[in-house]
Design a protein around this nucleic acid. Structure first.
Lengths: 342, 342
DNA sequence: TTGAAAGCGCTAACAA
DNA sequence: TTGTTAGCGCTTTCAA
């Protein structure tokens, strides 16, 4: 293994000291009044010798890694995949790389990944939090490490976050359904204490009230978290059978519930929107096309990611540690899955 | 900032030397014949003092990071998203984290990301390569760094890889279409020198020949790489218009071409499969459901990811450096997008 | 069975 | 304007 060239090698070759080389390589020549000639010489040598700084040594000294840690539920989910892509794009623009972990909404894993990332000294963290990681999260905040929560946050945790107005989003969905004459609206959501899901439920209830529609408990299905796709479809199918003929619309509160829900509905031979109006929180390929396209409450994924990186960077670069709370608005995209009831 | 506890702190507290602590913490007590009592004491102390090893220092000494670098085209793509998820799962099982970068099939970015990851001393690399990164890739291979290419590889590069039998996959698709009586089969692929795409084209041509069908150049559309979604749809739309009435089936060679293609077809008011049979290489949410579901040549994503990690680990752990070439088989999933022509 | 000390490559305080 | 040196936290050789 031919050892990489180090700052020392360059210094030797150039006949100057380590310091000089270090200064030049860090672009502080001007500041430190290193001569043009010297600077030039070192730079050229570094280039010729293919110098690449050793990030361990650098990190050991400076504590910085130029790396952002990203924790999401599941990188293969449409929402989080798109989010990760933008985060990576934005990070790349400013010379950062991204290390990602999926929490899988699994308590055990949640607990350890944040520690794992902290061990690796991320410069900042973008996290879709789970309850299980709260203790670690508190530690992070206490140490004033740059961190931004996304998708949801915890009231008891004084952190920066970028979320969306979930209540308004759900409300929009119900209002829309109601405006088309749908009066018996079912909800399919997750059994969870995550804020965004609770808020989506809340918006649904609020929407029903505002439109003077009855709130029927048996129209609300809360699926357990962490079910396999197959199980999820099965659960939703059962639910759909239990409310057959009693409802005229169903509202899914996330894209993966929507995908599973559609599978359930198709397998029951339901026609959308003839037999049932469908609306979904979150977008997905499947909803964009498909016949019919599914009307959705779409999240501004790009803005969420950009804002999160932006806040993170301001925390990383300024020593002053400002906590920011950003709540973005959702956007209804009308497609063909809602029937105009007569 | 309260400094983290170091090995030194523990040594001081325990009244022993650094060495002893290091040995114990690395689980080499037995081997080094450290007394039970000593071991116990150090371990307890480490736990109580919340010791977490400094990865920089460790890396600086050992050169290892317990991190895998993953380079894909686009993390938000269905195929790569799923792949990334499994890679992360597998890596997690063995105490590794994953750092990912999207090449975006962009030459400039391709060239730099591998260097970026190498700077960060990944223990191994899983890479969907692009032509632009060939020089870096060669360097990697020359240095015998653990690396596995996925999805495609380069003949001129003697590396480990995990791919699928693209020719056979395409052949299956064409055979299937032909068996249903489709005789005028168009192809929508990318303009690229990537092996997998060339092989899919090759399989298509082979399929036509085997079934004694004519090869019509104007039935083959090669879309430029890196088009935006909107542009892609537009291009495919134009193509579809140019072959309107002349074809009875179309074969898309990747999931994102398929998604764009469906959008194009829907916007032209085409009914699938009545107006046109459709088949696609690669799966996607959209194809699984949707009315009708799209018949696809599906890739064994899980196996690809698992195998890649497995090979990587064997390279990382054994000093002996074995290159492996794995070619997995695709799997036709019949859905409703192919018409039985009469 | 344990300890002392060197050194991984870099930065920064201090000296010249 | 440039050089010397300490030290970041860890592993490992060598010595005791």
């Amino acid at each position: 293994m031919p050892k990489n060239t180090s700052i020392k090698d360059i210094a030797a070759k150039a006949g100057v000291s380590l310091t000089t080389v270090s200064i030049v390589l860090n672009g502080r020549s001007k500041e430190m009044k290193i001569s043009e000639a010297m600077t030039e010489k070192v730079l050229k040598l570094a280039d010729k010798m293919q110098y690449r700084p050793n990030q361990f040594a650098k990190g050991l000294r400076t504590g910085r890694t130029n790396t952002i840690g990203l924790i999401v539920d599941d990188i293969s989910n449409y929402f989080f995949g798109c989010l990760a892509k933008i985060v990576e794009e934005e990070a790349d623009k400013i010379g950062y790389t991204v290390m990602f972990c999926s929490s899988e909404n699994n308590d055990g894993k949640s607990r350890q990944i944040l520690n794992m990332l902290m061990d690796k000294h991320m410069d900042g963290y973008i996290i879709a939090p789970t309850k299980a990681m709260l203790p670690e999260l508190e530690k992070l905040i206490r140490q004033e490490k740059p961190a931004v929560l996304i998708d949801r946050h915890y009231m008891e945790l004084d952190s920066s976050y970028v979320t969306i107005d979930n209540i308004k989003g759900s409300l929009d969905a119900v209002n829309y359904l109601a405006s088309k004459g749908n009066t018996r609206i079912a909800l399919v959501t997750n059994e969870t204490d995550q804020l965004q899901m609770q808020q989506r439920l809340e918006g649904y209830v609020l929407g029903l009230k505002k439109n003077h529609l009855p709130i029927v408990q048996s129209f609300i299905k809360k699926c357990a978290f962490g079910l396999s796709d197959v199980q999820l479809v099965k659960e939703i199918k059962q639910f759909m059978l239990s409310v057959e003929g009693k409802i005229d619309a169903v509202f899914f509160t996330s894209n993966n519930l929507g995908v599973a829900g559609l599978e359930a509905l198709y397998s029951l031979g339901k026609k959308i929107p003839e037999d049932l109006s469908v609306i979904c929180f979150d977008d997905n390929y499947l909803f964009r096309l498909g016949a019919p396209g599914i009307t959705v409450v779409s999240q501004p994924i790009k803005s969420i990611a950009k804002k999160a990186v932006e806040i993170l960077m301001s925390q990383i670069n300024q020593k002053q540690f400002k906590k920011e709370h950003v709540v973005l608005r959702t956007n209804m995209i009308e497609r063909g899955s809602v029937k105009e009831q007569v």
